[in-house]
């Protein structure tokens, strides 16, 4: 009876960890969750009377694989900047060049290079709500009349530093930083 409860608890932990792994915004946390997932799996193998498999799972699943992912994460350096706006009726190369000359995007790109990340700018016609809901932008820039709005995820620590950077520098354009949480609206 006790074994059944322990098994059920372990299976629940595994399901929870799997969900957390895909739901979290911080990749480092996802790796940790995956390690816990592997450890519960190896404990479960002990209950299923497969201690051999349990040892292999514990060492490889939560040790070697986590480390491989960590060192891969060190190389993950692309930082996606999304530029959206309803005043982009037809995107042309000329238009994009014009936006790219925009000082704010330049500053963000410089900042990314400073932090050893490769900036990648994506222009799209979708509305800000769609952009925040559907795609995997690290930061979204929306131009509206007179100012620029910067949307960053609540857990994205680069956004804090960006906000600090822009608050130190004097800017002509009005800049507003908006944070949002996962799942919640703005």
């Amino acid at each position: 009876m006790n074994t059944i409860i322990a098994e059920a608890a372990l299976l629940l932990v595994m399901a929870l960890m799997a969900l957390l792994t895909i739901r979290t915004q911080i990749l480092r946390m996802a790796i940790v969750y995956m390690g816990i997932f592997s450890l519960s799996a190896s404990l479960l193998y002990v209950f299923y009377r497969a201690p051999d498999v349990a040892i292999a799972e514990a060492v490889i699943g939560s040790g070697l694989v986590a480390l491989l992912y960590l060192s891969a994460l060190k190389r993950y350096r692309v930082y996606t900047i999304g530029v959206v706006g309803s005043n982009m009726p037809n995107i042309s190369d000329k238009h994009i060049l014009e936006i790219e000359r925009n000082a704010v995007i330049h500053d963000i790109a410089d900042f990314c290079v400073e932090r050893e990340r490769e900036p990648q700018t994506v222009f799209s016609q979708e509305s800000i709500d769609e952009a925040l809901l559907n795609t995997n932008y690290d930061i979204v820039i929306e131009e509206h009349d007179g100012g620029i709005r910067l949307y960053g995820h609540d857990e994205n620590y680069l956004v804090d530093e960006l906000e600090l950077l822009f608050s130190i520098r004097d800017r002509d354009t009005e800049l507003e930083v908006v944070r949002f949480r996962a799942g919640a609206g703005i």
Binding site: D52, I55, A56, G63
Partner: peptide
Amino acid sequence: PGGGFQGGSV
């Protein structure tokens, strides 16, 4: 329980 593969990975 154990063996070459498991001990090797440890």
